[in-house]
Design a protein around this nucleic acid. Structure first.
Lengths: 111, 111
DNA sequence: TTGATTTTTTTCGTGTTTGTAGAATAAACT
DNA sequence: AGTTTATTCTACAAACACGAAAAAAATCAA
């Protein structure tokens, strides 16, 4: 029942952003990374709830950021990809590649 | 509000399968195409409800199959990718490529 | 030739998971 | 206290998933 290990579309985006930003990624920067790369407008709430789901599935791990930076604002929560997250991304990419392999979209359209 | 033109993960899979099979694709064959390419077990109900959603969004079009083949069974409903569907796939691929671009998953993991 | 049976495919009904957004809250600095 | 930066909460919509049920076409049996 609905319990599948496959990534949702937005989950994959967030997970990729986490992977890209390495140890420094956190809610705010993950959001802009996605926005800049995809041109898509992303609400911060979506990012956080997705991060929570990814962490529940053990695809990412988080840690509290240093609470002593020279700036205002609450401490950051940094995210990193967990081993299962790497695998999930690899699988997802492999499946996608197989589906795109040799496909000519023009032909599909013309037919 | 929740109204986005972005493809869901499974929607993209189904749309790609439709594109691959050209004019001959219909529920059953689309299902096996996805299964064979991705190794993922797909329920027929999911395929159909997704096809309906895609058609409502005008990403695919369907037509009744010839009801005179030499075999039992109900007539087929064939699907083809519509112009908007082609665009949706292109966009989705472009975004994905930008997110994967230059990413080293091993590095993300080691960090 | 009618109607029961088999085959193939689609439709329905229902429950779960993901996606989306914004308001509320928290924690740090000045 | 006020400002800034960031996360958590809440609520609802959309997407996904499954199996049972229904349809429609062919075949078989009398």
């Amino acid at each position: 029942m609905g319990k599948s290990d496959y990534l949702g579309a937005f989950e994959e985006l967030v997970l990729l952003a986490v992977a890209r930003l390495g140890e420094d990624g956190y809610g705010m920067t993950l959001r802009t990374e996605i926005q800049e790369r995809t041109g898509r407008d992303v609400s911060i709430g979506s990012v956080y709830s997705t991060l929570e789901r990814l962490e529940a599935k053990q695809l990412v791990v988080s840690r509290e950021g240093d609470p002593t930076p020279v700036r205002g604002g609450r401490a950051r929560r940094h995210f990193q990809v967990a081993p299962d997250g790497v695998r999930a991304l690899q699988n997802s990419r492999a499946a996608s590649e197989r589906m795109w392999e040799g496909l000519d979209l023009g032909a599909a359209d013309r037919a």
